[in-house]
Design a protein around this nucleic acid. Structure first.
Lengths: 337, 337
DNA sequence: ACAGTTGTTGCACAGCAGTGCAAGTTTGTC
DNA sequence: GACAAACTTGCACTGCTGTGCAACAACTGT
């Protein structure tokens, strides 16, 4: 029982301690760390010396309390280990940090119920903004967020809610273009490989592709073998390519699906790409550019989107309620030119 | 100028507003949202009703101010779009959220200088703990963090600093085993594909492999073509396989390197794997299990590590200063059994 | 030397929530 | 009905910082 201190909670050093050591008032300390405040060079120097000595760092929690701006931006995301989501989080954290924000990542772990909990955290921590990358947030909570002065940004959602801002990829235009490209490559039996996830992006791509094909008078096979991932893509290949009337042009709504599809097509069905079969993907994840794949796909301008989001938080009035970004074709070798 | 309100800063609703609406004291509101506090069922109900009506959410910033525990855990990470880092961040956020923590991700964007800035943010936001996944934090700042009562956890670093806790993968044991496995597969000309990044993990794997081979009397070619990634792996293959005395057993210190190496070996050099050449990787990223690769590699127990980290933050006294996790072989088809 | 200007500093309060303490209320028991 | 015990409730203070205001010092120009 020599050290009976049960909780060695070393309370972190505060401004008043610095003031004491520096021999000035607490206000002086505060002003030293506030841009544009009036402090004489001498006191400033004394404060900085004391702060350095004690290891003082302004408490942003307390600062946020006063300013009504915590500096925190929440990112609500699921499946963040997948290439596209991971790239997005990476880009977003970078852009937001550049603007002086700090990013809180709320992982919904795929369970829709957790989206609500995440949104609650967003309110608890008085985040300045919330970016919903995946999942469908309950409308009422979104409204609560906005009423509390929070910015809400929904990525690739087309809900008709008043209040939040939307950032959208032009999925329809891209899917339509995919159909055009495959037809121009001479494909006559088209298929779209989708997933059972049913997120707005995926549905939009799938639907637009089917619509475009039907407008051209071509019937399309739609296959959804499971969740959005490599394994489902491979499984779709097994289902689509085993039949008699196998497709010769396939649009996969996601690169991961496309890679699984490609591997199964080449390895299990010994098909030559693009001679026997043209394949297009979506997202342009890193693996799409690997030697073994060389996948023709669509690139989402992730960096631009991230910059745009960070920029939105800068101007008070908020900017447009909707912002659209194009997805551009990245030509590689899984489609005949 | 109809709406001259320049700043529509809707200040978020506070406990006193709820108290007013509910017709009780502010303390009652506070107690309603504090576990184990004494409130009668009636007042509790009144408070909850008012809170729901107003959309009240406890301000965790203010709460953290009193409790000296913000609930925030910082994750300092670089290159988080790469498969392994992304998986780690995913697992960590999940485990920490399960324990009631909230994760702040600080992206150092690869620049070592940013590690320092990130550590400062950690102090500014009074994080309860900081997990350094990548980058070498300045020793003095780490000490400041610890003096301020913060937990610091370094992943895969072997610095001799007193204070932080370490979580390590048994890189040496795995690399040694890799050497054994390749030799047992009949490989006689070994090489290790590494990177110029020079992070502790990579150096440890590389060094241990070379040591193990030398102990067995085999010389090893070491190749570092660039940063840790697919392209470098492919480039290493070009450099190593073009020579006369080409290796027949290669240990890549990272799966990404291995996949690049494999693709280049198969496509550009038309080598058969594992007949002509055995390849091992490290990390067991998702792509390692894809049909086209089927890479024999080592799995890092990411989920266990994440759980362990989250657990460490639960017990006051902190637990052991070092914790080691094994990396287990995942047998697939790039090595002869 | 004096009035006026400019710059610095400290006081005191605000912002939000948790909690010890004392006063108040209800319940229980004999 | 009296008294103790148990529970509720509000007050007032705490934690940490930013800032308006007033007091103060220094400096300028005449």
């Amino acid at each position: 029982m020599a050290k009976a201190k049960l909780r060695p909670k070393k309370s972190s050093v505060s401004a008043s301690k610095v003031a004491e050591v520096a021999g000035v008032s607490r206000s002086a300390v505060s002003r030293t760390f506030t841009d544009g405040a009036s402090v004489s060079p001498e006191t400033r120097a004394k404060v900085l010396a004391a702060a350095e000595k004690l290891g003082y760092h302004v408490n942003h929690l307390a600062r946020g309390l006063i300013h009504h701006r915590s500096g925190i931006v929440c990112l609500i995301v699921a499946e963040m280990q997948t290439p596209f989501q991971a790239s997005f989080v990476e880009a977003a954290t970078r852009s937001l940090q550049d603007k002086g924000k700090v990013v809180m990542v709320l992982n919904t772990a795929g369970k829709p119920a957790n989206v609500e909990a995440a949104l609650r955290q967003t309110l608890n921590y008085r985040a300045e903004a919330t970016v919903v990358v995946s999942g469908a947030p309950p409308r009422s909570l979104v409204e609560t967020c906005i009423e509390n002065g929070q910015r809400v940004i929904l990525i690739n959602r087309n809900d008709a809610i008043e209040g939040p801002q939307f950032v959208m990829i032009e999925n329809e235009a891209a899917a339509t273009e995919a159909c055009f490209i495959l037809r121009r490559a001479g494909c006559t039996r088209l298929a779209v490989v989708s997933s059972t996830a049913g997120t707005p992006s995926i549905v939009a791509r799938e639907t637009a592709f089917v619509d475009a094909a039907q407008a051209a008078g071509i019937e399309v096979l739609v296959n959804r073998a499971g969740p959005t991932g490599y394994a489902s893509g491979a499984e779709s290949a097994r289902q689509l390519l085993a039949g008699a009337n196998r497709p010769d042009g396939v649009f996969c709504v996601t690169d991961l699906l496309a890679l699984g599809f490609l591997d199964a097509a080449r390895i299990e069905f010994r098909l030559r790409i693009p001679e026997d079969l043209c394949v297009m993907g979506f997202d342009d994840i890193a693996a799409a550019g690997w030697l073994g794949y060389d996948l023709t796909t669509f690139r989402q301008p992730i960096a631009e989107i991230a910059d745009h989001i960070a920029g939105m938080l800068e101007d008070e009035d908020g900017g447009p309620a909707q912002m659209h970004f194009p997805a551009r074709v990245v030509w590689r070798r899984t489609v005949r030119p």
